[in-house]
Amino acid sequence: HNLTITQGKLFFHYNPKLCLSEIHKMEEVSGTKGRQERNDIALKTNGDQASCENELLKFSYIRTSFDKILLRWEPYWPPDFRDLLGFMLFYKEAPYQNVTEFDGQDACGSNSWTVVDIDPPLRSNDPKSQNHPGWLMRGLKPWTQYAIFVKTLVTFSDERRTYGAKSDIIYVQTDATNPSVPLDPISVSNSSSQIILKWKPPSDPNGNITHYLVFWERQAEDSELFELDYCLKGLKLPSRTWSPPFESEDSQKHNQSEYEDSAGECCSCPKTDSQILKELEESSFRKTFEDYLHNVVFVPRKTSSGTGAEDPRPSRKRRSLGDVGNVTVAVPTVAAFPNTSSTSVPTSPEEHRPFEKVVNKESLVISGLRHFTGYRIELQACNQDTPEERCSVAAYVSARTMPEAKADDIVGPVTHEIFENNVVHLMWQEPKEPNGLIVLYEVSYRRYGDEELHLCVSRKHFALERGCRLRGLSPGNYSVRIRATSLAGNGSWTEPTYFYVTDYLDVPSNIA
């Protein structure tokens, strides 16, 4: 807008934040220059609390790290170098490059900038070799853009010569660093050979998330399962459950009422301010606690030095998902009996873990797994792929695949051998790939016309006998059925096997 004052003059007093240069501009645009008398524009009460600059400061050096910015700028000295009290560095987070010096300023003089007072450097006698002032900004957020400017702080001049310097606002972004852990990993099994893994992005990506790394490792069953005799009275049979499938998407929606109208769909109840505040506090606490764990609990591995020492970490090797089922080394339970199943799973520490690289999504279907087997899954978020990966501390989750139908069934015939004193040795093959492992066998036998009897055969007993022995049988026709019990439950009964026990007292003698 054009402003013209045809008559009258300007009068400025007691404006401590208004620089004289701005008042002189007002004289020019209003056409009143030359009308004012000496005392109409006070030299001592206008701009006496402001830094009124008329020179431009330029930054000469900028260096960044993930949490620091090192700045240096060209030296500046007023005509009387004693008038320079120091520099004021202003900075704040700036997602967009549209910041002005006066953003967030209120009537009390406060604003949204963080201000650092910096002492002037030592003055050199040689004007050509003056030290460049600077400042190291610490405690910054990774991968965050900051708006920065600097200006001088000078003393009051009796001659009211307006001098000083100020830089333009520059924008500097800190470097990326390792992201925080992925949030809320959930693993479920939808079949006997697959596990579905879902997660949420890290709360602090500290860069642009480029991919996720998912490692999985087959877990050995508890050692007590191999040692305890679950045929003993009072000892509860062990059981394991597989990871249940995901709930429906509708039930997972946030901010939804727990109660549904019987007449149909209901609208979600909005969260109160107290609920939102509580969630923010919980989120802040979780982030602080995660940072504490990362800094205190997890110790970084030592990389190899120039002395030739090897990095103890196993090298990563990509495998196809079809090879995942046989990740671990199978060892027989008892070496003397080769027909026992290889369900003991000690994992070799030198073995390469299978892994998958996930790009542009937060889910993965891990296939080719062994049925009813526990897996430990390790999830890392990465925001750099080359020249070397920059990934987060791992988040861990466990899951067990679903049982395989008929995996616990005894394959092959049940054979028998009759000894003296009416002892019958029953023999059968253990299931080759049971659900988890076989903890015991149930032997059901009966003599024709009598009630059915049951015998429990422990895992250890089966390994020693290759089956079991029935003792003290009365003469007669017998039928026997056997079924295995694994961590997933009972298998199917075998087809009945028949044998006849004679009275050993009636056996004919070869003595003449």
Rank of each mutant, 00 (worst) to 15 (best):
A399E: 10
S223R: 08
S305G: 09
I377R: 00
P245E: 09
V324G: 11
S341M: 12
R316Q: 04
F298E: 08
S284V: 13
T288M: 09
P314Y: 14
H211R: 05
A407C: 01
V424T: 03
P205K: 00
K317I: 09
T373P: 00
Y441I: 00
G264S: 06
S367R: 09
P244Y: 13
Y396F: 14
Y478G: 00
Y498C: 10
D250F: 12
L487E: 03
P205T: 03
F355W: 12
T210I: 15
A484H: 00
L369C: 14
P205C: 05
H461Q: 11
L232H: 12
S315Y: 10
Y478N: 00
C382L: 00
V480H: 00
D385W: 07
L470N: 01
V299W: 02
K432C: 09
S243W: 08
L235E: 09
P270T: 05
V501W: 02
G234L: 09
E362Y: 14
E217V: 04
T343K: 11
A463S: 09
T386V: 03
N295R: 10
Y498L: 06
D408Y: 01
V334S: 10
Y498R: 11
F298W: 04
G306Y: 09
V443T: 02
E356V: 13
E249H: 07
P338L: 10
H416C: 09
S458D: 04
D229F: 12
H425C: 04
V359N: 09
T343E: 09
G264E: 04
N339E: 12
S274E: 06
T288G: 11
R218I: 09
Q252P: 07
V296E: 08
S444C: 15
Y375N: 00
I276C: 03
Y504E: 15
G264H: 06
K357G: 04
T307P: 13
H425R: 11
V507R: 13
E258W: 13
E451S: 15
P332V: 06
L235A: 09
A407D: 04
S243C: 05
Y448D: 15
S363W: 10
A335Y: 06
H371L: 09
Q384K: 02
Y212A: 06
V345Y: 12
L232G: 12
H425V: 13
P238G: 13
E217Q: 15
E417C: 04
S344C: 06
P349T: 10
V414S: 01
S262I: 15
Q380D: 10
E495Q: 06
R240M: 13
V457P: 00
G476L: 00
H454I: 13
E451K: 05
K361D: 04
K317M: 07
H371F: 13
P354C: 13
Y259D: 07
E258L: 14
S257T: 06
G467S: 02
L453G: 09
R218W: 04
L426S: 02
G306S: 08
W216D: 00
V324D: 05
Q219S: 05
Y445K: 01
T343G: 11
V457Q: 05
E388D: 15
T303M: 10
R218E: 10
K271E: 07
S251T: 10
S398Q: 14
I418A: 09
A395Q: 14
Y230W: 13
T497M: 12
L232Y: 10
L321Y: 10
D503V: 13
V443C: 02
T340N: 10
Q275L: 07
Y375R: 01
L369F: 04
R390L: 11
K236F: 06
S398I: 10
T328Y: 14
C231V: 03
T272R: 13
T343H: 11
A484Q: 02
W493E: 02
I366Q: 01
Y230C: 10
C456I: 02
N255M: 13
G207H: 03
G489W: 06
V443S: 00
K406I: 13
S223K: 07
R370L: 15
F289R: 08
Y375I: 05
C269P: 07
F355K: 14
M427F: 13
N295H: 04
V424G: 02
E442N: 06
Y292F: 07
N477H: 06
M402G: 03
C382Q: 00
C266V: 13
F285A: 14
T333F: 11
Y396C: 07
E350G: 14
T307D: 15
I377C: 07
T210N: 03
G368L: 05
L453P: 03
L440V: 08
T494L: 02
D450P: 01
I377A: 06
A484I: 03
W428V: 00
H294K: 12
S283A: 10
S344F: 06
Y230N: 12
V439C: 07
S274K: 07
I276H: 12
S492K: 01
I418F: 10
K287Q: 08
T343D: 05
T485S: 11
D204S: 15
E247R: 12
D385R: 07
P403K: 11
D222M: 07
E224N: 15
I438C: 04
G489I: 09
R459V: 15
M402D: 08
S305P: 13
S257N: 06
